[in-house]
Design a protein around this nucleic acid. Sequence first.
DNA 1: TTCCTGACGATTG
DNA 2: ACAATCGCCAGGA
Length: 169
Amino acid sequence: MPAERVDLNKFRFNALAEKSKDISRTKDGSIEPSPPRAPTTSAPFPVDPVVRARYRSPCGKRPTAHQWKVWDFLMTVPRGKVTTYKGVAQAVGGSARSAGTALRSNPFSPQVPCHRVIASDLFIGGFYGEWAKSDSPRPKVDKKRALLAEEGVLFDSKGYLCKRNQLLG
DNA sequence: TTCCTGACGATTG
DNA sequence: ACAATCGCCAGGA
């Protein structure tokens, strides 16, 4: 294979990976892996308010009341079912978008099952900050799909939920 | 405090 | 059908 072709493929890969935020570019133009979006913890999900008050995420941040509410609600979504960002917002307040913000910083995945949240049009949606696009690599969303498949929740080739009755509610 | 950025969702052209 | 736009609101800098 000509070197020219190799370089082209490499360039294409980097462009896609950069778009999906798996890598980022430093000031001098070199490429480095992006830091993980939401490092997970092996600590058990705390329920006690006192334990919560002193809890710090792996990034050293203290979760907000809204985040605890979102995560608490997720704990009520059973295996084999999914809900939507909109559904989360209706349950705990705020907007669908702000629900996504709380999921994005969930340090207890998959203990707190943020993989059971999909878009309101039944599209599989995102995972760990990565939003599924059919024309780009989506390793994290593939992981989400695998987790849900293990729970009996399947999506079609375009990424839409197969069985509507698996939606919570 | 102000400003900006998103794992959204609904509307519009 | 599809992309562009707009409203949304929690967090972080």
